[in-house]
């Protein structure tokens, strides 16, 4: 059976299928706010450690420690969260510690409490004052936008030279 919904917190300390999850919802409905079975949510509670790979999740909320690879359209690493490995998604918000690569399709928000070591690839990046970033930042698809704007001084010198050449020719 396909696991659609993983809910892991310091209370449960395990990953479970949707059916198992349902029964816990009924017993302790107030504890779990991710009660919708169709929402592909991963929630790693504070104090929980996970090693491995998370794929196909829609919303990932990490307050614990995660080592490995995560592919999720929405990733939220809270201030107590620690991540080691490769992270890729569309909308990513970082408030905790990251060591590794971050790859964002759309919006990457780095909050004040964040501490990042590694490579960041982004489309839209916002960093709050106080965040610590050590490593390489790359803008997606900026190879083209850069080449068109290369060194205006050299460009204009060239055009002047061209004009002079033309004059000499005449």
């Amino acid at each position: 059976m396909q696991i659609k919904h993983i809910f892991i917190s310091s209370l449960y300390k395990a990953s479970m299928s949707t059916e198992e999850h349902k029964s816990i919802d009924q017993d302790e409905g107030s504890v779990n706010e991710y009660s919708d079975n169709d929402s592909k949510t991963v929630n790693v509670g504070a104090g929980v450690r996970i090693e491995g790979r998370i794929d196909g999740a829609e919303v990932s909320d990490i307050s614990g420690t995660l080592s490995g690879t995560i592919n999720s359209s929405n990733i939220n690493l809270n201030s107590s969260g620690i991540f080691n490995g490769d992270m890729s998604g569309s909308d990513i918000t970082i408030s905790g510690n990251v060591e590794g690569d971050i790859n964002s399709d759309q919006y990457l928000i780095v909050n004040q409490s964040a501490n990042i070591k590694g490579t960041i690839e982004y489309s839209s990046l916002q960093v709050s004052y106080g965040a610590k970033i050590q490593g390489t930042i790359r803008h997606r698809g900026s190879v083209h936008s850069y080449s068109t704007n290369l060194d205006p001084i050299e460009k204009e010198d060239k055009t002047e030279n061209d004009l002079n050449d033309q004059k000499e020719d005449v």
């Binding site: 960093v127 004052y129 106080g130 965040a131 970033i133 390489t136």
Partner: peptide, 26 residues
């Protein structure tokens, strides 16, 4: 802003929309 190169800083803030291809040293 469009930035290419190396950035050494104590405090940084980056606004949405800027294009940065750089190595950051905190």
């Amino acid at each position: 802003a469009k930035i290419k190169g190396n950035i050494r800083y104590n405090n940084i803030d980056i606004q949405n929309g800027s294009i940065i291809n750089a190595d950051l040293f905190y």
